[in-house]
Write a protein that binds this DNA or RNA. Structure first.
Length: 350
DNA sequence: AACGCGGGGCT
DNA sequence: AGCCCAGCGTT
């Protein structure tokens, strides 16, 4: 056991705080409306939760509004071409989420008549819906009394218990402690605890004087509550290098192609380039042309840092088979991840 | 259990 | 210039 004599979390204090300070979010039903019996739309909650996986509220908001405007129901999203979904997801990152999102919408329509399962166990059978997301939807939409444990809660609980080990070591104990605290209004409690983590018990700051569970918190009695959660040693981030080739034809169109369906930036759009390796390889232009070096793009992924040398040339469009030529005005609609938008910007094509 | 997988905002 | 995020699927 790693939890020092766990003092129960005061769920009623958390709910009282939430009633006064709940953030107004496009996918959320306010605690006042919830008390009047208004229930959140599982489709909108599911969509928001998938977008919010490892992604901040600020980054998600406009994507959520765009998606719900284009596809107001799970039937609309299921009927959309995957390509359209990827294009709308471009820039949000973790693109497997977009592929799973589409697969999930189709599964809900095909296997469940367009109605989301109403339990966490049922929800977790869906593509892209894991332990966190299934619990969040079940609590928020269906008042299932289940612990909803995300990165925010890891931090809040690690501080509350002054956890002396990294979170992953004590994950089960934290979950049990949170489960024991789940009150009626499980959905509001889940959202309240995540709001608490996002606003009061934030990664780099802890506004303990404003915190509704400060009385039971062990970290707030220490010199610096933000030392929790204790971090395991960080792995170093290797560098990979490569070349990117931006080809423009006489009309000013740009040559694009699709990446493989799975893996890094899977299914997204790119410009041709070399493999990415620890040492920069020789330049190998796809076709003849007046190639010029336009600069370097640095892009940081989760597990490596990429340095791309960007080349561009005016070329003859014949002899290129795998991709397509995109007009400049159409680039905004392509499924280009941020990396390749940087490449095009350096090449002066944007 | 460990790893692969984006991008942006905050400090 | 790091650090962290409303995690999931694969191995």
């Amino acid at each position: 056991m790693h939890l020092p004599n766990p003092a129960p979390i005061d769920a009623q204090a958390v709910l009282a705080w939430y009633d006064r300070h709940a953030r107004d979010l496009p996918w959320r039903v306010s605690p006042a409306d919830r008390a009047r019996g208004i229930r959140p739309d599982p489709y909108r909650v599911w969509l928001s939760e998938v977008m919010l996986q490892q992604t901040t509220v600020a980054a998600v908001k406009n994507y959520f509004l765009r998606f719900t405007s284009l596809w107001p129901s799970v039937f609309d999203l299921a009927a959309a071409p995957l390509d359209s979904v990827l294009k709308q997801w471009a820039g949000l990152g973790y693109y497997a989420r977009a592929r799973n999102l589409h697969a999930c919408a189709q599964a809900v329509v095909r296997d469940h008549g367009g109605v989301f399962p109403m339990t966490s166990a049922g929800l977790q059978t869906l593509p892209g819906v894991g332990a966190y997301t299934s619990a969040a939807i079940a609590a928020i939409c269906f008042e299932e009394p289940i612990a909803v444990l995300d990165g925010n809660l890891d931090r809040v609980l690690a501080r509350y218990y002054a956890l002396p080990v990294p979170v992953r070591v004590a994950k089960d104990e934290l979950r049990a402690a949170l489960q024991a605290a789940v009150p009626r209004r499980a959905g509001d409690f889940a959202q309240a605890m995540m709001d608490l983590g996002a606003t009061i018990c934030a990664p780099r700051t802890a506004a303990c004087m404003l915190c509704p569970i400060q009385p039971g918190c062990l970290a707030t009695r220490t010199l610096d509550p933000t030392i929790y959660p204790l971090k395991p040693a960080k792995a170093d981030r290797p560098v990979r290098k490569g070349h990117a080739y931006v080809m423009v034809d006489a009309d000013g169109d740009v040559y694009l192609q699709s990446r493989p369906a799975n893996g890094l930036l899977g299914g997204m759009t790119e410009v041709p380039g070399s493999a990415w390796s620890p040492e920069l390889g020789e330049v190998a232009y796809p076709v003849a042309g007046d190639w010029k070096h336009r600069g370097q793009v640095v892009h940081v992924f989760t597990h490596f840092r990429l340095e791309l040398e960007v080349w561009s040339a005016l070329v003859d469009p014949d002899g290129l088979e795998d991709g397509w030529w995109a007009g400049r005005s159409a680039l905004a609609d392509e499924a280009l991840p941020t990396l390749f938008r940087k490449v095009l910007a350096i090449a002066g094509v944007d």
